[in-house]
Design a protein around this nucleic acid. Structure first.
Lengths: 124, 124, 124, 124
DNA sequence: GTGGTCTAGACCACC
DNA sequence: GTGGTCTAGACCACG
């Protein structure tokens, strides 16, 4: 359960946890039925408040990625990967739209944005 | 000075103002030496607080886009458009990076992101 | 003693056990004077903690459905079925009231609730 | 904004707030665009913690019933009443199912449940 | 031990 | 003033 948090990021800590766990599930590193670390344990490991991990688990449960059973623990649920991908696509769409918007405002052509995207893809 | 604000947007009001004015300058609708509306006048026009327009002008001045002369008013500076474009490109880079990161986390291929970008470009 | 437990249900495990045993008694599958499995035995069979079965037996004893004789075991009491039915009716009443309340809060007519009830009855 | 809370209820306070506001919106007592009391103000009025009202607003926003604008306040959004009714119907369905389940376990016939429902409807 | 709820109190950005 | 986030600490039911 390698989760690296950035305290200085503008992304809330609980969002960072959610994103990372979603990633682990999508990549199959967490599989259906796997037991998640307990809210308290994860809080200790990450040196954050219990409430922060609780909030992350709450969001994951709401999205159907995990099942939280009171007094038992949390488990990875049978995931609908297509639905998650769809959600991710929506998020990506938002970023791209803001990129295009900024470009338009500054007289930068779409092709240049495309170019930049290609370049970033190669770098990573 | 057509500025349309969205109160419900997650983008802060002052940032919306900055973006729009930057756009007007980049597109040549505001030229070097032009007088900007006063902070108070703009606040009245946009129905926002003076503090909000003040903050917008502060940011524009910090970026070298306008010159604020105390007791006189604000003027569009001799703009180094290339520098501004570079700054915009940095911002766009950020959005694209976050898009790619989200894609990577969810097993979405770079080509699909490219596809999405093309599609969004056509729509607008 | 066929008892099926759902670990992921929001109904507490001990409550599921109580409900199931009450059902067995009401349907005559457990009769007056019958010996109940021991708390420890039942815990082993159901793969739950002894504390859990203990709590279930406590509740059943409190409701007068079984008699727990220390150092001997537990036995089905001479049951007053009418009283149990009355208790069940109270519980049902509670559910129906909450259903009607939710309906009223959302402008759903009583007839629609009735309809829904009929439909559910047919399905099962 | 008449909200009555029961501290002794098993229903969480923030849920009670959510239910009540949902009701007000469904009944047209809160209309599209109406300003909601601020999270802090409502907390003071109801003598609960800010976090409790915040949580309620969060849930309402998640369900699309209100729009929360940072530093501005919360507003009733254009509501999709059909969607809300559907959600309510789901909730009602759950209550009715539990009622039927309890009835079945105790040898109470469906007609008696129906009868009870009719009677409760008349009483209120 | 687990998760669920509520509290008070703090800091932040924004208007 | 507003909402957003994080914290520590408490009590509860359940296993």
């Amino acid at each position: 359960m390698h989760i690296i948090l950035s305290q200085s990021s503008s992304v809330p800590i609980y969002e960072q946890i959610v994103m990372r766990i979603r990633e682990l599930i999508m990549h199959g590193e967490l599989k259906e039925g796997d037991a998640m670390p307990s809210i308290r344990q994860l809080a200790r490991d990450l040196h954050v408040s219990i409430i922060t991990t609780q909030r992350a688990y709450e969001e994951l449960a709401r999205d159907g990625l995990i099942r939280v059973v009171p007094a038992k623990g949390a488990y990875v649920s049978e995931t609908d990967k297509d639905k998650i991908r769809q959600m991710a696509a929506e998020e990506i769409r938002g970023f791209l739209q803001r990129a295009l918007e900024t470009a338009r405002q500054n007289g930068i052509r779409e092709e240049e944005v495309m170019q930049l995207l290609k370049q970033l893809g190669k770098e990573s």
